[in-house]
Design a protein around this nucleic acid. Structure first.
Lengths: 211, 211, 211, 211
DNA sequence: ACCTCCGGGACTCCCCGTTAGT
DNA sequence: ACTAACGGGGAGTCCCGGAGGT
């Protein structure tokens, strides 16, 4: 491993990766540059060879974290037909996912922090969530049901599903490992598919209710 | 210059209140003791008259924030019959609530942080969420439907509803004020009642699905 | 010793005395009320039965310290004829006086602090120094010399003598016990009388010089 | 934000200078580290980059204040022949010097405090006063008079003169601006040269007295 | 890429003057 | 007159982000 010109780019990338993981684990302000550099067996003095400021790292790490999440999500979602949603939910609301914040969903890990950050950071979340939404919407798809305002409906359902997923995972994490935590995961895992069902079939009744 | 008779208890209480508000607004680590004291027009020196450490304040402020939230929630939930859920949801997913983190729901504001805090803090969230769950479960009540594992069912529904509420509010905040943010609030507000509906009436189908 | 009405006045007086001593020893800001009260075997909570504020004690203690000093000074100055000045100087510039700040001259002990205190405090010093000056001036007296602007002359001499006394004592204290400290005392003690001599006898030359 | 290359040495020096000035003005205990740092537009957190403790700053600031004083004194004293003493005295006992404690003589400003400080501090005063004494002694010089124990004599005179100077300035400051304050300065200014005269010429009488 | 260090600012501790209640 | 405690504020310590210099 000579210290070729490529090694700088490599270190940059490793830094962003490590930061993405630590940020998801401890929050954007939860880890210092010094500790981060130590992870790569570097000293923190060298940091500024790669970034102009911590904020720059934050931006890049967030970008990475969010796109990785989106990518992984989509892959699980699109493998075949309708049953993929269930598979995705099973993964998303698993205890393993709950406990591995470093590798898990960036939105669930960092959305709470994003509310207090700059508009730029929030824009990053917005873009990614929008993308996630589209993917989920497509997965829920209008295809399988009778054609009834399908695009709108499935997007709305996707929003509801996403909210429930993020909320459930966040709650499960907030209460620590406990019966409640496991109950949240298990219950929402089981029930969440009813949302898709509800929107696809018995649409008449819902409309009546809302009026 | 002299302290009025208002006494310690008052200052202590005001400190906890101010901390609760600021914590919800900026996160538990987002405000310094010094700035907190300034809010009460005090200086940082007097802080340790009231708390042994910052952590002690965190504990008390979290307790206050969480119970206040729970209290307000229950009040909105129980005014009459079933329609209160809708009213509660309308309040919870309003833009005003989204923008007023200082006075809004403590769980939504701080659950993201709780995941990285001590087991004690997580226990506080657990207790409060449990209480919220019971209240919501009762509000969704088994009463209106035929006696079919009603308690269990309504608790499960409550979990789903709560998850969606927390998740939607968190997402709406994370993306900043924007069409997406408003869409999240609006959509979930409209759709969330279908969750309750789904569980209360057409219970047969749900069961079939889950099997 | 019942706690009769007289006892309060008594405590007040003892406080002022103790404060005067401590202030001279450690400076006006060099002792806390708490420590002061302990000297009287009281607790510091009772202080405000006797004074409205620390400043009030300072004023009274300074008054006492300054007048006691003046009194003692005058007594040593006026016992007989002219040789009293020498006796006074011998006392004033003795190592014992240097080492016993608590009972020694208040002006020498506190003039350095007075420069940084309020106009009121400085007025106290002004009055007392004026009185000391008059006494010394009288002691140096115009009597023994030929009548030549005698009052003016002796006042001027008194000023010079006082300056040298205060300055020598302050210097002797500032350098700590050491050959230099003792040299200052000894030398000024011996030489200072030449000032009086200079003014009383060979007045012609002085006047020529000043013109 | 960000520190220029100007580096530590500069800040250190500026701190010592500022401290020297403030100490002379308000006393060694009269200014807080925080306020001191504010003068340099720094915060108190950075202080310990430059000094291990407040005491260390005190030592250095005292050293600076004392040597600066001595230097300035000697410069005024040695410009030509004997008349320089008068010029020095005129400066030393001027109202301007009385009112500018921050830039004025460190001995006069701080000797009162030194008596209550550690032996180390007193040693600093001792050294500096010794140096001042030698300079003044040399200025009074044995040269002009008949050769009679000249060194001893002029040192003794220097001691007397220094005492009078310190004492007069201290008194003038202690009583605040007032007729008395001005009288002290004026009178001692005029009379102090008689001390030198007294020692240089009529030496016989002095010797007789001392025996 | 390292090491060193600067300046910022937080937390904690402790003492002071002052006040209230016993 | 004491006990207790309040609020002010200084000192000391630590760590962080950032900026040289080797």
């Amino acid at each position: 491993m000579g210290h070729s010109k490529a090694s700088k780019a490599n270190t940059h990338a490793r830094l962003v990766e490590a930061a993405a993981a630590r940020f998801k684990e401890r929050g954007v302000d939860g880890i210092s540059l010094s500790d981060l550099m130590k992870e790569l067996e570097l000293t923190h003095g060298g940091f500024y060879r790669h970034f102009d400021s911590r904020d720059e790292l934050v931006t890049e790490a967030l970008e990475l974290a969010l796109t990785q999440t989106g990518q992984a999500m989509r892959e699980r979602l699109f493998d075949g037909g309708r049953s993929n949603l269930a598979a995705f939910v099973d993964f998303y609301l698993d205890e393993a996912h709950r406990d591995q914040r470093a590798t898990g969903c960036a939105v669930a890990a960092l959305a709470g922090d994003a509310a207090r950050k700059s508009a730029d950071v929030q824009a990053q979340f917005r873009e990614q969530i929008e993308r996630n939404l589209e993917a989920l919407s497509e997965a829920l798809g209008p295809g399988s049901g009778p054609a009834s305002g399908s695009a709108e409906e499935s997007r709305a359902t996707a929003l509801l599903v996403l909210s429930a997923l993020y909320g459930a995972l966040t709650m499960a994490r907030a209460v620590g490992d406990s019966p409640l935590s496991r109950e949240v995961l298990r219950t929402v895992r089981k029930r969440i598919t009813t949302l898709g069902a509800a929107v696809k079939k018995p649409r008449r009744r819902s409309k009546v209710k809302r009026s």
